[in-house]
Design a protein around this nucleic acid. Structure first.
Lengths: 235, 235
DNA sequence: GACGGAATTTTTGTATACCTTTTGGCGAAA
DNA sequence: TTTCGCCAAAAGGTATACAAAAATTCCGTC
């Protein structure tokens, strides 16, 4: 029962702590949609599934609670947070403000190496899209896209800003896809916008970079007309 | 030694949890300057002082770590975070951006009751200042001022924005006073600025309100010339 | 059959015990 | 005297035990 690692993907050199393991595992479950809004998060169950005791599970849940991904109430079972359309809009609005600011700062600070990295990331994203088509490229895309934005956030050289963007303004991909335009519509535009952001950073033009990032994020901003046809029978 | 409450100010009706107690107590120690940057936060010691076990202490320290007030490293003793001038500038810049946005939103949403509350808060702040003078009014001022800003943040009706402002962009008062202009210079101006923000909110003018809040915060933004004469022997 | 409430089970909150790692000191060798 | 390394003490990390609250079940009553 209590062998150390039941099965894991994150087994690098330095053994990571039990709470890190638990945190990333649970977070992944939520962000990928394997656990859906309202699902119960039972400490014992999670502890057994991940192979650690309740203590690190509780610590992980508290972090996720602070990040807004789970809802904890005293003596009540934790549940996966629910994201309404309003929540999605709020998150994108705040992302636009903060990531726009970050991009502006990055324009005058980013290193040549980071610019190369951004270009490489975008190149791979577009190549995967050409190769795999609309839907199959999504799994790889999310990861690469996250790093694209993370590189820019880091280049802003504002640690608190970086942390807020990374931890307080996340949205599960499933929720995002529910409220946003369908992939087919937004993919090509996203690539064009990424290229423009990159160009603005290369030009070291803060205003342009900020505006391009804002345009990118606001174009993704969920609308009531997002994709009403989805309506599956879950509810 | 281990009686439940050695001494406390937060003893309301509903018994609050041990971690809440610990969190608020430790946070207060840091924000008021009773514990200074670099001071060691030993779990056993805090547990004994507050009268709970290590478990809630650890939870509280983790929250404070996420908020940036303490620094935790695996297997290392926690310490009170150090705030450089750059940190203070960063915090004020982000506060200006986010609180400006919040004030803009508040202008078109704030209730009459909240406007009354803001006016009352400002009235008391000014009265205490007139009565007590430059320095003695400070303890009361910090609390009232915090509520003034909190009321506006709440009126923006953006829960994540409110949470970020309340938890990720705090600065210990002692640090603030170290880097900012001396009280005598800023107090009267602060009151005038508060009145202007209130007027802009009353006028329900988002641009004005945002600009007034920005002016308020940027005027407080620490500068290298802040108060260089302090130079005590700590360093 | 539906409703209400008490007993039981489940689940979370806190304390404590145990393990791993760091920290600091002491002594030997250079 | 300094430095290195080892050992003991201290501190954090995790597991487990116990307490308190909530969720659920099971009856009895209407």
């Amino acid at each position: 029962m209590t062998n150390e690692t039941t099965r894991d993907g994150a087994r690098d050199g330095a053994t990571q702590s039990a709470v890190e393991t638990a945190y990333h595992r649970i977070r992944h479950l939520i962000l990928t949609g394997e656990m859906r809004s309202g699902d119960k998060l039972l400490e014992n169950q999670l502890a057994a599934a991940i192979g650690v005791s309740r203590t690190p599970i509780r610590e992980a849940l508290n972090r996720l609670n602070a990040e807004g991904l789970v809802v904890l109430e005293r003596y009540r079972r934790g549940i996966v947070a629910d994201f309404s359309l309003d929540d999605a809009v709020e998150i994108f609005r705040l992302r636009a403000i903060l990531e726009g600011h970050a991009t502006s700062r990055a324009a005058s600070r980013i290193s040549e190496a980071d610019l190369q990295r951004l270009q490489e990331l975008e190149r791979v994203m577009e190549a995967q899209f050409e190769e795999l088509g609309w839907n199959e490229h999504l799994e790889g895309f999310d990861k690469l896209n996250a790093e694209f934005h993370a590189v820019i956030a880091a280049a802003a050289e504002s640690p608190r800003l970086e942390k807020i963007l990374a931890s307080s303004l996340e949205l599960p991909a499933s929720i995002f896809n529910r409220y946003s335009e369908p992939v087919e519509v937004r993919t090509r535009r996203t690539h064009a916008q990424h290229r423009e952001i990159l160009a603005a950073l290369r030009a070291r033009n803060p205003e342009w970079a900020q505006a391009a990032m804002n345009a990118h994020l606001f174009s993704l901003l969920p609308t009531a007309s997002g994709s009403l046809e989805h309506e599956d029978g879950a509810k």
